[in-house]
Design a protein around this nucleic acid. Structure first.
Lengths: 235, 235
DNA sequence: CGGACCTTTGACGTATATCAAATGGTGTGG
DNA sequence: CCACACCATTTGATATACGTCAAAGGTCCG
């Protein structure tokens, strides 16, 4: 069996995993134990939680984050419907990041005995999970590049593009716009800038006609220009 | 088989993998194909490289990084002897990050047919690799927290602590100090600050007696105080 | 209709960047 | 073994992107 037979090996020219691997999705459906709903604002998982479960997101948006002792919060990623969360956590005794619902969130809990067991009994599924995790690590590294090297204007552009592309790939676009329940405070915490500066930067990009955020929805107006501003990575 | 039997499930209370999993090390030794040496400054791997190999570092230090088109560089991690590199890359067509030798670097090339094949034929080894990758992802997230939320002073403190702890865990400490071939430019590129500011910050921490860098070696003087400055994460 | 939360705007402060140049190591070749 | 060349470190002066503080609108929902 080669990665190509699996149709799982990721093509770097297509920067994101377009959709959730269908076979993996199928596996998750079959192992679904129960569905859970968290209201907006609820904490789904807290750093340090013992043996957190493995979830697949059915509906709603969430954030994954880490905090410092004095309360400063870094959002690591935005979680959209279709995302699998808590796979990495299976390798640790405790959850290493926290997750909070941004909107009401529906999750289905995936059951399996144990992560090591999965590797023994279902190596193909384990492989698919691993490919997903590899892509998530890549996303973290992209974020690191963004926050470390890009200016606030570039970061905001890159974030808007990223969220838009992910949502679009999941067929969340309707009437030319995607849901956008993200607040300016979220943008600030994800990009390491202040709320006020996030506001001014978003404002400026919108004044220049690159996109429009209105009524919790995002309409992309000039993706090419936005990419220009964002400064693409080398590859 | 449970993670505990494997002694691989990672304990969050011990923030880092102390040493390379011995069984994995053994596997790598047995699959060693050839040894390669790169001189200081050489590019070991370049973003975009097709089907990059899997390496284990025998000797020397390296950096893993990504760049923007205009040349800005973000160092993602420092690679020390004992580290395995290129595992994640196996899931992609092309390398997603670049690697450069800081000192002369000795690598051994690990052979196996194919990553998917490894999952089928050696699920236990695949599991150990995955645990390693999970830990690397955790490190990336820690970095993200650092760069996004910490001040320059806190970032430098956290980086010095991190490198020191990793080197110490690998028994690289001799006569109370560890090798430290990292330049101030490296520190700047890893933390998203300017060279000049990296210098002033390193200087200040040393003036306050927290550590000492001299002759490409680092001597830790007051780890507790440094941790204080660095602002630990919540957990 | 009130309250909670989010967005927007102005004024001002500061951490960090940039520019420029001197100083200090270190390895190599004469 | 010296001396040059190259690179890393250090320091001062000045600039700016971004943060903080404060307060005024919006918007949504009970």
């Amino acid at each position: 069996m080669s990665p190509h037979d699996l149709n799982v090996k990721l093509d770097t020219h297509e920067p994101q995993l377009k959709i959730l691997d269908p076979e993996l999705l199928d596996y998750i459906q079959r192992r679904r134990v129960e569905d859970v709903v968290f209201p907006a604002g609820a904490t789904i998982m807290l750093e340090g939680d013992v043996n957190p479960p493995l979830y697949s997101v059915t509906e709603g948006w969430a954030i994954r984050y880490k905090t410092l002792q004095d309360g400063r919060r870094q959002i690591l990623s935005f979680i959209l419907p279709g995302d699998v969360i808590g796979f990495q956590a299976q390798f640790f005794e405790n959850a290493v990041t926290s997750i909070e619902a941004v909107t009401d969130v529906s999750l289905c809990v995936v059951a399996y005995r144990d992560i090591a067991d999965l590797y023994q009994t279902q190596p193909d599924i384990a492989f698919r999970f691993a490919a997903l995790a590899a892509d998530q690590k890549r996303q973290m590294e992209e974020q690191l590049l963004s926050i470390g090297q890009r200016t606030a204007l570039e970061r905001v552009s890159a974030l808007i593009l990223d969220i838009h592309n992910r949502a679009e790939a999941r067929d969340m676009k309707q009437a030319g716009s995607i849901p956008f329940p993200v607040t300016q405070q979220h943008v600030a915490d994800a990009l390491g800038i202040s709320l006020v500066h996030a506001n001014r930067t978003l404002k400026r990009l919108q004044r220049d006609g690159l996109f429009r955020i209105k009524g919790r929805r995002l309409e992309m107006l000039d993706a090419a220009a936005l990419e220009q501003v964002a400064q693409k990575p080398t590859s």
